[in-house]
Design a protein around this nucleic acid. Structure first.
Lengths: 187, 187, 187, 187
DNA sequence: TATGAATGAGGATTCATTCAT
DNA sequence: TATGAATGAATCCTCATTCAT
């Protein structure tokens, strides 16, 4: 008899929730938070509309979980690069590589980043994510640079990322590295 | 004899359009583009709902005009400061003052800035404004710095602005100036 | 035990869609397509406004489905009468009866008919219905009359229907039959 | 001094009202009564929106005057042809020519015709026009045919017109004439 | 557990009309 | 006389969410 299993019936689609989160981030990238609705995300995830409020406690919860994951991945990628650095010079190179290959890798990620900034700016309930994110970043850089340098470097990273996201031409990799060295190592 | 009646004057309100644009920017700052609707803006501007599509050719037109004005004001403020500078050192001070007193002056302006970035990232029809904005910025800085320095400085300005907008503590003014000098004058 | 409560049952109203279509046709008859709006149809069907775009993919879809059903019913009624005819003489009588008792039966149906003609005239997306309708009509008549006669008969049927719809006095049944015989049997 | 003329200052555009009526009929033909609004008509007539309610006492008045003119022109064209006929045979030819060259001449006119029928069907305030129209028609035909024949002929004319308006193929002129003769002269 | 059906609130927009000029 | 400015009502439609199953 089909139902006799004692295991919990995790029917069909165990990754459904994750698929919704991924779809949500994709929609955010393409239409912005303003254009992100249950319907649109459900369609993108090929999931029935009813699933949305079953798996998530409303729109806000969905956005929060989505950006939370996004922050996690960003932090992990940065740490992976910085963990391999042994001195400030290598740290600069790791930072440049992170900008080039992680933060700026896809338009999708760049857009999500910007949407997150904008969201945090007027909705305090996302501050927990941004705090955690910034904290991890600065803590990671703090292993190589003093406090003021860390802050400046962070600003420069954000600025360079932003520039590219706004449609600027693909920036010269060497120039990026030189800029970072300027700030980090004092020219 | 002027009509001193307090009753709402229904006809002939020549500043109405400007009031709507101002209200729109306020709403953007408070709720984000996602939360900016005809209804909300109309209420903020104390204007009937029907006025919105009378004065503007739809929501997109309103946003475009609003951000256009915002960019204009930002450009004008920056130029005013830079026009007073006579050498690179004074230009650095002008930039720091612009960040401190213009771009970062109010939470309202910071939020609008971020919303604009996010909007431009996924809606190309606002690229004309961002191009004009960036162009004016770099042209203004180009009077004092070479191309690569200008780009780096621009990134750093954006990054510092961004940081503050995201709720960071009021940054040390001296540190900002030092950071700019690092990038601009090579430490 | 059946729930005899008079409170509005909110979920599970399987005939709701059909009720909306019927209400739509009623509104078309009473106010014309020009006066047919979601609001008015929803009120006529005793259905919340939100139902309209849940069950139909917009106003156009609703009109299309409504006229589609109307055409179906008209075709079925005509065929039922013509299937009973065994020769041209009986076919003439069937046609007269169709005009008298089906097409002209109610003011509602006459008006819907006219609205459909007008709609088809300027909106090509309803041509599929009119083509199907005319085709079925002529195919049914084609069993008894040659091509030219069929076309002329069709025109006459439409004309007689039209006349009555425009408020002419109840036409003499005998005269209608004579007119049809004239055209069909050559006087 | 510019204003010193004693003549009434019929400034600028004395045919404006007529232009609006013509534009109204054009819009009716293209979008149906449902799509005919002050705005659209004003645009079509290249006339300011304020003109609409200045020259006409609201939408209904505009439609009424427009259809009134349309009926006048149709009646005049029919009479012109029938006045030249001297016997029933020539009258048949005149009718066929009227269908072919007047009623069916343009898609615009055919559509307006249908819109008028639909409008009359549910709005009694246009019955005065349809009565006048039908009366003139039947009175004109009554000079050559008896009452019953006149009614049948009228129906056939309407039916043939309708058919064509609904997008049927260009009908064979000879067949039209034969059909009319059938009804009018008994085969 | 999971979802299709359903809905009221609110979305942008168009409308006929009024009114000050 | 003529019209641009203005507006409240109503337009179609999308939304997040609820609920019966």
């Amino acid at each position: 008899m089909e139902k006799s299993s004692t295991a919990p019936r995790r029917r069909n689609d165990p990754e459904r929730k994750q698929r919704i989160i991924d779809a949500c981030l994709t929609v955010i990238a393409e239409r912005g938070v303003a254009g992100t609705s249950h319907r649109v995300v459900a369609a993108e995830a090929h999931v029935p509309l009813g699933s949305m409020t079953y798996h998530f406690d409303g729109m806000h919860d969905l956005l929060h979980q989505a950006f939370d994951q996004f922050a996690d991945r960003s932090i992990a990628a940065f740490r992976a690069r910085m963990d391999a650095a042994t001195d400030a010079e290598e740290a600069c190179e790791a930072i440049a590589a992170n900008i080039e290959h992680d933060l700026l890798a896809t338009r999708r990620d760049r857009n999500i980043n910007l949407e997150f900034y904008a969201l945090v700016a007027h909705d305090e309930s996302f501050r927990d994510i941004s705090s955690r994110w910034m904290g991890a970043w600065q803590e990671t850089m703090g292993r190589f640079f003093d406090r003021e340098t860390t802050v400046m470097l962070d600003a420069m990273i954000e600025g360079l990322t932003l520039h590219r996201a706004l449609g600027g031409e693909p920036r010269d990799s060497e120039a990026v590295l030189r800029g970072i060295r300027h700030v980090a190592l004092g020219g």
